[in-house]
Design a protein around this nucleic acid. Sequence first.
RNA 1: GGAGAGAUGGCAGAGUGGUUUAAUGCGAUCGUCUUGAAAACGAUUGUUGGUGCUGAGCCAACCGGGGGUUCGAAUCCCUCUCUCUCCGCCA
Length: 434
Amino acid sequence: MLDLAFIRANPEVVKTAAQQKRVAIDIDHLLEVDARTTELRRAVEANRARQNQLSKAIQAAGKDKAAREAAIGAGREVAAELKVLEPQLRELEAKLQDLLLRVPNIPDASVPVGRDESENVEIKRVGTPPAFDFAPRDHVELMTRLGMLDLERGVRVAGSRSYVLRGDAVRLELALLQFTIDLVSKRGFEPLEVPALARDFAFIGNSQFPRGREQVYALQHSDDADDPELFLVGTAEVSITGMYSGEVLDASQLPMKFVGVSPCFRKEAGTYGKDTRGLMRVHQFTKVEQYIICQNDHDTSVQWHEALLANAEAIVQALELPYHVVVVCTGDLGDGQVKKYDIECWVPSEGTYRETHSDSYFHDYQARRANIRYRDHDGKLRFVHTLNNTALASPRIMIPLLENHQRADGSIAIPPALRPYLGGQSEFRPKDPV
RNA sequence: GGAGAGAUGGCAGAGUGGUUUAAUGCGAUCGUCUUGAAAACGAUUGUUGGUGCUGAGCCAACCGGGGGUUCGAAUCCCUCUCUCUCCGCCA
């Protein structure tokens, strides 16, 4: 959420940002609602002031019955007027709040303007895609042959975009998660295992709601089917934002650095026909997420944004995956994001790079929604800044991991960094080699 | 799932319809005293919005969230959330 005072002072900046992010929002209408709200609030407050004066007059009247009755009579009139005005004010305030929640954040000046992901800009390329002297297999074929994947039965249980990991894939996933948490926590990040269920306020704080609600699974937690109380998170980011909602932190506690793990659930609404094969886009997965809460300072945010990227790069480098980094263009940015880097790893079966990590900073956009503040050294309250980046998402990471390290016989080399987490094992080998 | 008790400022804790403008204590900040510190003493110390001669002042709201009764609610009523105690169930 942006500061309303900022929107009032810079409507054109906000309009341009919304346009570049391809968000349809009528800023003029918002300002008009804002003006009407202020006007009505003044009227309500004037009535309340009058009410307080009369209340004192009633006390002061004591046993002077006439004065007392007169003041109570006047009080009735004020109360009657407030009874009309107050619901109008509440309605306007709710409308204004809803509009405010839909105003996107301002992208950084360094973000390229573009329509969609096709206009993201590569800034870095690391490693070389492997040159196979055989036709590389895709992850579905490799994993099925290795007894690691059972798509058919996963779909039987839970429908399309579902899967069962079997055998060595389960060991591999646990190894990947532990390797990742170890690497990031060694860099000073506190491990968290957070709820995968969260209330709506956590989603609002994170800026998944109100826009984006259709991507989230709602749970009927009470008997009132129209009022789901809990939702399944699509990322631990939601839960971590919710953790500190409403708190006033102390400047000395910052920065807070977390590495959180959780199951993640996504409806993937509107992606029919996209990445339908295999493990690229699934309804349920497991993700290790980096999250930082820092002081309200642009340069500090930028510094941590780079640090989070460096952590993620260390992970894909240790897994020996060829990758590149792109700056995401305005049209592909989330509402709250100021700037975002994606790491995309090379996928041999597709002959292209695919997103595995997403590194964003928000300034105080999330903090303002979630009301996370800190008392600065000068004694003032400020909203914190928040950032997050994937550390590792599984099973998606298995696609480049297994495809890049495959051999002609269908076996797969395990990168040395991962071997300690697999009992020293150096490869996955099918029972029936090709 | 059943029964009961609670939720008040950074913390503790009074307050059961009208000078509550939320007491008191602790903490914090500043000052006095001191070589310095501690102690003692004094002062200050919440948030949000509005107004404004722009951080003097003035107005409004906030006692877990929301709604209601009343001229007037921390206080009475309804509802939701959470915490604690006991019983039941359970990995």
